[in-house]
Design a protein around this nucleic acid. Sequence first.
DNA 1: AGGTGTGAACACTTTCACAGCA
DNA 2: TGCTGTGAAAGTGTTCACACCT
Lengths: 211, 211
Amino acid sequence: MSRKISESSIRRLSIYLRILEEERRAGTTTVSSEDLAERAGTTAAQVRKDLSHFGSFGKRGLGYAVDELEGELRDIMGLGDRWRVALIGAGRIGSALLEYTGFAERGFDIVAVLDNDPGRVGEAWGQVTIRDARCIEDVVRREAVEVAIVAVPAAAAQEVVDRVVRAGVRGILNFAPVQLRVPEGVALKHVNLVMELEALSFALSQDNGHS
Amino acid sequence: MSRKISESSIRRLSIYLRILEEERRAGTTTVSSEDLAERAGTTAAQVRKDLSHFGSFGKRGLGYAVDELEGELRDIMGLGDRWRVALIGAGRIGSALLEYTGFAERGFDIVAVLDNDPGRVGEAWGQVTIRDARCIEDVVRREAVEVAIVAVPAAAAQEVVDRVVRAGVRGILNFAPVQLRVPEGVALKHVNLVMELEALSFALSQDNGHS
DNA sequence: AGGTGTGAACACTTTCACAGCA
DNA sequence: TGCTGTGAAAGTGTTCACACCT
């Protein structure tokens, strides 16, 4: 139950949760740390350590009750909470994201969409209407937006972030292939295909040297 | 010039490369580790350490020549090499990826697209024609595919991976929200929106407790 | 016996601090 | 002087190994 949990530990919790959902659907009632580790691609000790940061959920000699642990993890990850989200950038990535149901499933409700193309402002998009990106601050405040999804070109991303943060946003999910700076207290996560591609390229070209 | 380079170090190299491209376009000729660190959101010592794993590219008292360092990084990351890629899954994610120009820019040439929907097999898609996913092994061998992009539902992902790996694929870019197992020697990278969303949810709900 | 929870050992990463070159 | 390259120190994250509970 300590204070500072590592990023890698949290990502593993997400993996465990996915496995528990699947096990529950398959009718499994208990799992051991060994089972979870096997399926998550880690070690049993790691699983136990990850969980122990938040409490004692297992039964010695038995393992973890699938239902119960799933509920605990949902709770730990804050998946019961709901967040008001603005999607910024209605281009290719933006449109793909708007159709994605995974946001709402995890508590992220898209309440506004913004774009800087005057030709698109006013266009109806799903439940919402595209608004002018010049009014970011206004929209964020009026709609009580807490989270911004940044799906704009790399060159525009930092400015967008500065503006939404000033307007009160506390979490950002960034799809632009740049490193963003945010003040202390603002949560920032990246989905960066370019970085993964380059890491893959590196790994592949390394192997070559080995053979 | 050691052997084992950490994943985080490689991801930072990718960030440095992006910054160097931008600086070059802006006409900058030299940068210091301090400059790079500032823009990359890390420390000067970290930048120097990352680079020192691969050689000595800087000039003491001056910094790094932008052009030269950019070239070195491209080389280190293997961005001069080209890889033959099969895109597996022609659904929503698959179609978005096929239109993405970033693959070719980084040496990944999509030479085949596969799907398991019989109704879509034969459909022309960009330069290639959708082929039947039942023939994965065949296509991989015939087209000398080295890398697979997995854009299929979570439940199907592991089987697809097992099959392409058996057919000789050496690198995988996975978009399915599951943890995949691959044998030693096969490079595996993930783009996992679900995990980032849940990590964001966790971070946001933690902050709440603090206030 | 079987499997969790956890301090202690270990491994890895980051930061410090400075020698040494331009 | 200015800034790199790098050992050594500090800090984090992972693995081990075992006490303890059912």
